[in-house]
């Protein structure tokens, strides 16, 4: 039995997992990249986490779908 290529397997598994996180939690993902760079609450209301514009939310989700697609592509290439 041939050894499982570790990097390709990691790329497939982690890629799909990251993609699902991007689709499910777009606001959290934007926050991870903006906290400390811009005040987190300058958009939302006082005392709450910042809300993000819909365009950002959907852009992150599209990136998530792309991530899942590339992850699946790498995974299928491994199996086939």
């Amino acid at each position: 039995m041939a050894p499982v290529p570790l990097r390709e397997t990691l790329a497939a598994v982690l890629g799909v997992a990251l993609g699902l996180v991007l689709i499910a939690y777009p606001e959290a993902v934007v926050r991870v990249h903006t906290v400390g760079r811009v005040p987190g609450n300058r958009r939302g209301e006082y005392g709450d986490d910042a809300t993000i514009p819909d365009t950002w939310r959907w852009a992150v989700r599209v990136a998530g779908v792309a991530c899942v697609a590339v992850g699946l592509f790498v995974g299928i290439r491994l199996v086939v």
Partner: peptide, 25 residues
């Protein structure tokens, strides 16, 4: 320099940033 390597690099970068930011947040 395979497509899987480029993709893995991006994914690892993002996941690493998220893990460190859990502590920061």
């Amino acid at each position: 320099n395979d497509i899987a390597d480029f993709f893995l690099a991006i994914v690892v970068g993002q996941i690493t940033q998220m893990l460190v930011m859990i502590f920061v947040l």
